[in-house]
Amino acid sequence: MSKIAVSTTVNGDPAEFLCDAGESLLDALRGSLGLTGSKEGCGSGDCGACTVMLNGQMVCSCLVLAVEAEGKSIATIEGVAEGSVLHPVQRQFLEHGALQCGFCTPGFIVAAKALLEVNPDPDETEIRYWLAGNLCRCTGYDKIVRAVSAAAAELRQERSAA
């Protein structure tokens, strides 16, 4: 069976890959494109470790076919920091000790960044419900929620200073 050529944009850069018709976007990212920051915890859209942005929409990349990326724009964990400058969500995860094993962390960071883009001042409940599609087995979520809240405050301050 011949492969399908896909032209897409990943973290702002043009990217091309070949995939099977049934291949998931997650497998294409991790395989052909070598971007292993997105993780597979379940392969069924239940854990959120593979969360990426597809044309600005938060998706589980394990549930998206790789061919669907044709002509679209994908943002992954690898593109969250600007060069070597961490995004406030990344920095606050570190400051708050909001990761233990770190395997779910890329998915949480992509999801949290997406939250703060649509809701700059989420309360605890809003953070918890937005992140309810991301499983973390280590932290009990407490420090994650605090880190996201602190990142929101930092971003609001940046915006008001700008």
Binding site: C42, S44, R128, Y129, Y141, I144, V145
Partner: peptide, 17 residues
Amino acid sequence: PGFLDYRMPVASDLPMI
């Protein structure tokens, strides 16, 4: 045998600990 039906706690199930 999956995280949908083997239901581990998610953030919205919990208060601060």
